[in-house]
Design a protein around this nucleic acid. Sequence first.
DNA 1: TTGTCATTTATTGTTAACAATATTTGATAA
DNA 2: TTATCAAATATTGTTAACAATAAATGACAA
Lengths: 231, 231
Amino acid sequence: MKDSPEDQIVNAILDAIAEQRLPAGTKLGEQALSDLFSCNRANVRRALASLAAQQVVELRPNRGAFVMTPSPKEARDIFQARRAIERTIARHASGQASAEDIAFLRGNILEEAAARKAGDKPAELRASRQFHMRIAQIAGNLVLERFLSELTMRSTLILGLYSPTGSSSCAEDEHDRIVDVLESGDTDELVRLADEHLRHLEAGLNFDEPPAAPMSLKEQLMAPRSRSQAK
Amino acid sequence: MKDSPEDQIVNAILDAIAEQRLPAGTKLGEQALSDLFSCNRANVRRALASLAAQQVVELRPNRGAFVMTPSPKEARDIFQARRAIERTIARHASGQASAEDIAFLRGNILEEAAARKAGDKPAELRASRQFHMRIAQIAGNLVLERFLSELTMRSTLILGLYSPTGSSSCAEDEHDRIVDVLESGDTDELVRLADEHLRHLEAGLNFDEPPAAPMSLKEQLMAPRSRSQAK
DNA sequence: TTGTCATTTATTGTTAACAATATTTGATAA
DNA sequence: TTATCAAATATTGTTAACAATAAATGACAA
């Protein structure tokens, strides 16, 4: 029951982006990927085409594939779209959560808090994303779920670029209140909370400083030398 | 300034679906496409991977690529998502339309009416889709625009499957009122009209009869012979 | 005729080799 | 040193051949 090599590649890259292990701008070489997943380049190519269609990867002709670096304007569009979609999701999820759903979400909040305390950023991001996606599942609309999946992925890239390190992810107490209201069935309040939550996240962005030079794999390894040091 | 073969293929297929020249279920053979666009199969493959990522094409392993046939459940999800997105678009487009925009939309309505009168279904569908997409452009959010593009594409497939022939596309007088209100700047009324418009479209669907057998290219050519005729 | 099965045909999947294009490297000159 | 340019290297793009799989055909038996 194993996936096709193409799906493996797509999922591995999406996971890496979701956990901020792959920052915006990193090059995704075909050789490197086909070596990593021990398959031929044809599969890599198809995987990259899929990712490009999801706007998660940028395909520059004759140059290769790069993790997408969202512009400030794109960031605004993405958060606007997220609000529209997550509000709709909230409306349809309200009162629909099973006991199992609620248990999962409460457990997820603890997990995220623990990861944050431990300084495990990838685990924290993964948990936070799961929280949002689980509520999307409860709403029961596969189209909205897929759209949100794409948007959370791109949001992670945005946070990595424009977030003053530290304030990057969701405030956990907001997640707490959301679960309470989701359970209570107060639809209007849930929608309000979802909207507010996303506005807070967006408010934490800072577009002033330029989006930290897109670095290649090689540059990630060599520490940047200062001029004086070179002399 | 011509597109890459991959983009050509993607766009040609999307156009064909948008105009209902390619019905749901038709097989998209690699050879056939590479012949048509005089390119190699590698390009075709990447194009199909892109289309599959947009949920417009279904990729069955070892069987090939087929135009997606949305299920009734998917149809509901898609229209629900459309309402969420087009309402948001309406809110942001309200009062933002330039004189040029309004002129385009009014011209579009005439175009669609003419096509309907002339019995030119493809032209009618193309015009109707352009109407919705133009308003999305006015709203100025590229993410929502792309989502809507995908959803209108899939909506066309749904109409082709589940619409009692004739009632398939939008009521034109509704488009008329929408332009009026878009121009006036009454945001709440515009949102209401957009929602209502989509509900009417969805209400015209009929999921009772099974979704008209997915036909292959060969079957499209040979007229179905009745049994008695064969004798 | 009708159903089943082996054979043939067509289609998709995989691989490797080659061509075209960027990028890097290193030499040369100011 | 710094800049410029040519050569070397690496990467992407293209093509064709082959293998694996599914579909179509036709023979055979009931």
